[in-house]
Design a protein around this nucleic acid. Structure first.
Lengths: 210, 210
DNA sequence: TCAGGAAATTGCGCGTTCCGCAAATTTGCC
DNA sequence: GGCAAATTTGCGGAACGCGCAATTTCCTGA
């Protein structure tokens, strides 16, 4: 085939597939049995590869579990770049977040996202996974900061602004997620995210009364 | 089990001492040789305890290294509670943060801030330590959120406000720290932190010109 | 179409980590 | 001084993480 170029490459695609398979397998098994009761061997078997291959993709169980979260949050920055430049910054950020995180999390397609919710819950409850998740979020925030810098014409290296916005947005998302998972009668996630990011955009006004 | 007064407890004090000794030993050795060239055995020897004892205090090298950071950031919440209630929230938070950073020389141990700075730089550069540091920050932010809720009369469980403020403040601190460590002619931290938190308090206005 | 070769998978082996368990030691308290 | 609880320590084993080299897969160019 001619066309050398930015094509994903057939081989590369297969790698991504096994990568995703390993990640989902890890989440599924650990949600079922608990982190300590799942060996790397089990995850590899579930994904149909040799145990050694697992460590060709991830250096630990935690990294495999957080990989889905990483990919998903990374897309927020990507989505932000697609938004029209005319849109106000916070609106664009909110839309990007909603598009990537909240879509299908509540209604209709429950199957795939129920796993995702279980994954988030898992990463929050297991102490040894919290760091892994936060690190993934930090990576995503760096990319988000770059996108914000581009959009606002600021310098991501010398100006605090884009990183502040990205970091604050990331924190707001985590707070909204946490609240979402803790709601004892389940509530939709979207309003929570809009609320959290909206308050940031409004300058975090102190609530009059609770 | 007689009077369990607020006494530190003679025994408890010794435990804290070895805990701190282990943590500093871990930081010092890893800064010198790199994470992969330091075994748990080395850290234990440096602190004067048996290898097995290390894992009675910490479950990993990373946790030991992040412990100093955790203790320090925890004190921000503690410091916030000491601030007069009349002081505006963001002023109080900024003062609390500044106080704890300036306190490094007196509180911990002999080596003042140079070790601490090296520790932070270490945790940022080593991928496997980033998560550990972020997790420590998250714990500190939870305590900060509780203190903020108390001060503002909000509910930390049902109102997003205190957690949003704590999370945003934590993000701002990390951005300021990052900038501090990257400054190629070294700059003082304090103005960076005041700048970052000040912008948050001002509602993150978009800068007019870079 | 097919051979050459790069890329990925796999098996093996080793050093390290982390933790449960129980004996030994230390520490606090009466 | 001596008992009881807490802490330290050594031992042992399961699991991990990764380097290395052989093997398999499959892309590519002639």
């Amino acid at each position: 085939m001619s066309g050398d170029d930015g094509r994903p490459g057939l081989r590369e695609r297969k790698k991504q597939e096994t990568r995703i398979a390993l990640s989902w397998a890890a989440i599924r098994l650990v949600v079922e049995r608990g982190l300590e009761n799942v060996r790397v061997e089990d995850i590899a078997a579930e994904a149909g590869v040799a145990p050694r291959t697992f460590n060709n993709y991830f250096s630990s169980k935690g990294e495999a579990i957080a990989a889905r979260h990483l990919e998903r949050t990374r897309m927020i920055a990507q989505e932000l770049r697609r938004r029209p430049a005319s849109e106000p910054l916070w609106e664009a950020i909110t839309s990007a977040v909603i598009t990537q995180l909240a879509m299908g999390a509540d209604y209709d397609d429950r199957r795939p996202d129920q796993q995702w919710q279980a994954g988030i819950r898992l990463m929050i409850s297991e102490p040894s996974l919290q760091g892994e998740m936060l690190r993934a979020s930090a990576i995503a925030e760096n990319e988000l900061a770059a996108a914000i810098a581009e959009r606002t014409g600021t310098d991501v290296d010398h100006d605090l602004y884009p990183r502040l916005v990205a970091g604050a947005a990331g924190a707001a998302i985590r707070v909204a997620m946490d609240q979402w998972l803790r709601a004892s009668p389940p509530v939709p996630v979207r309003p929570l995210i809009e609320d959290a990011l909206g308050r940031l955009a409004a300058g975090l006004p102190e609530p009059r009364s609770s």
